[in-house]
Measured scan of single mutants.
Amino acid sequence: DKPLMPYMRYSRKVWDQVKASNPDLKLWEIGKIIGGMWRDLTDEEKQEYLNEYEAEKIEYNESMKAY
């Protein structure tokens, strides 16, 4: 599988927590909350997800070359 983009990594990490805090919200409403949370992160906080993505992207590209 292709590596997940940084925002999607963050979304997967916080989804269950946001859903548990807001059990009556629809999926798109939860997505909207998470989008706002992502925008509110500092560049340093986002960098963690970007670093994970870049590392996985290198691994993915290497595995595709071998294939």
Results as ranks from 00 to 15, higher is better:
residue 47 Q to W: 02
residue 53 Y to Q: 08
residue 21 S to N: 14
residue 8 M to D: 14
residue 50 L to C: 13
residue 23 P to F: 01
residue 63 S to T: 10
residue 15 W to D: 02
residue 15 W to T: 04
residue 36 G to P: 03
residue 12 R to Y: 04
residue 2 K to L: 04
residue 41 L to N: 02
residue 19 K to V: 14
residue 45 E to P: 02
residue 41 L to M: 09
residue 67 Y to A: 15
residue 17 Q to T: 11
residue 15 W to P: 01
residue 2 K to D: 04
residue 13 K to H: 03
residue 63 S to G: 11
residue 26 K to Q: 14
residue 11 S to V: 07
residue 2 K to N: 10
residue 40 D to L: 05
residue 47 Q to H: 04
residue 66 A to H: 11
residue 26 K to Y: 00
residue 64 M to I: 08
residue 43 D to P: 14
residue 54 E to R: 07
residue 28 W to T: 15
residue 14 V to D: 06
residue 39 R to D: 14
residue 50 L to E: 15
residue 5 M to C: 10
residue 59 E to F: 06
residue 65 K to H: 08
residue 64 M to S: 13
residue 11 S to W: 13
residue 11 S to A: 10
residue 37 M to W: 01
residue 57 K to M: 15
residue 53 Y to H: 10
residue 43 D to L: 09
residue 58 I to A: 13
residue 10 Y to S: 00
residue 29 E to A: 02
residue 15 W to H: 07
residue 42 T to M: 04
residue 15 W to N: 01
residue 16 D to V: 05
residue 25 L to P: 00
residue 30 I to H: 02
residue 60 Y to R: 14
residue 44 E to R: 10
residue 60 Y to I: 10
residue 32 K to N: 07
residue 32 K to W: 03
residue 23 P to N: 01
residue 47 Q to L: 07
residue 2 K to G: 02
residue 51 N to W: 08
residue 32 K to D: 09
residue 22 N to P: 00
residue 40 D to K: 10
residue 34 I to L: 02
residue 6 P to I: 00
residue 18 V to N: 00
residue 65 K to F: 04
residue 23 P to W: 01
residue 32 K to I: 05
residue 45 E to S: 04
residue 37 M to R: 04
residue 31 G to W: 09
residue 17 Q to I: 07
residue 39 R to I: 04
residue 39 R to N: 10
residue 35 G to R: 14
residue 6 P to Y: 00
residue 17 Q to N: 13
residue 48 E to L: 08
residue 21 S to H: 08
residue 30 I to G: 01
residue 56 E to L: 01
residue 38 W to F: 04
residue 20 A to Q: 06
residue 57 K to D: 11
residue 32 K to H: 07
residue 66 A to G: 14
residue 25 L to Y: 05
residue 26 K to D: 14
residue 16 D to L: 04
residue 51 N to E: 11
residue 67 Y to T: 06
residue 67 Y to Q: 15
residue 1 D to Y: 05
residue 3 P to Q: 06
residue 20 A to T: 11
residue 45 E to M: 08
residue 45 E to G: 04
residue 19 K to G: 02
residue 36 G to C: 11
residue 38 W to E: 05
residue 7 Y to R: 07
residue 18 V to A: 02
residue 9 R to K: 13
residue 17 Q to F: 05
residue 48 E to H: 04
residue 41 L to I: 04
residue 60 Y to E: 13
residue 47 Q to Y: 05
residue 29 E to G: 01
residue 22 N to W: 08
residue 48 E to K: 10
residue 13 K to D: 08
residue 17 Q to L: 06
residue 48 E to P: 15
residue 9 R to S: 05
residue 48 E to G: 09
residue 47 Q to R: 09
residue 64 M to C: 13
residue 20 A to N: 10
residue 1 D to F: 07
residue 23 P to Y: 00
residue 44 E to L: 07
residue 43 D to R: 12
residue 58 I to N: 15
residue 15 W to G: 04
residue 18 V to W: 00
residue 2 K to V: 03
residue 39 R to V: 06
residue 31 G to P: 12
residue 13 K to F: 10
residue 64 M to K: 09
residue 3 P to R: 03
residue 67 Y to H: 15
residue 37 M to H: 01
residue 2 K to W: 01
residue 60 Y to M: 12
residue 57 K to T: 09
residue 38 W to R: 03
residue 27 L to W: 12
residue 3 P to I: 11
residue 18 V to R: 01
residue 23 P to T: 03
residue 3 P to T: 06
residue 49 Y to H: 05
residue 26 K to V: 01
residue 6 P to S: 06
residue 15 W to S: 04
residue 58 I to L: 14
residue 18 V to K: 00
residue 41 L to G: 02
residue 29 E to D: 05
residue 65 K to Q: 10
residue 26 K to R: 07
residue 37 M to F: 00
residue 17 Q to A: 13
residue 31 G to K: 15
residue 23 P to E: 02
residue 33 I to Q: 05
residue 2 K to A: 03
residue 12 R to T: 07
residue 26 K to P: 14
residue 46 K to R: 14
residue 30 I to F: 02
residue 54 E to W: 02
residue 14 V to W: 02
residue 49 Y to V: 04
residue 44 E to Y: 09
residue 50 L to Y: 15
residue 57 K to V: 13
residue 19 K to C: 11
residue 1 D to W: 01
residue 53 Y to V: 08
residue 10 Y to R: 01
residue 24 D to F: 15
residue 5 M to R: 09
residue 46 K to Y: 04
residue 21 S to K: 15
residue 65 K to L: 08
residue 62 E to S: 06
residue 66 A to R: 09
residue 10 Y to G: 01
residue 50 L to D: 08
residue 50 L to W: 11
residue 33 I to P: 05
residue 11 S to E: 15
residue 29 E to S: 02
residue 48 E to V: 11
residue 13 K to N: 07
residue 24 D to V: 15
residue 59 E to I: 06
residue 39 R to M: 09
residue 51 N to Y: 06
residue 56 E to C: 02
residue 30 I to N: 00
residue 63 S to V: 07
residue 61 N to V: 12
residue 3 P to M: 06
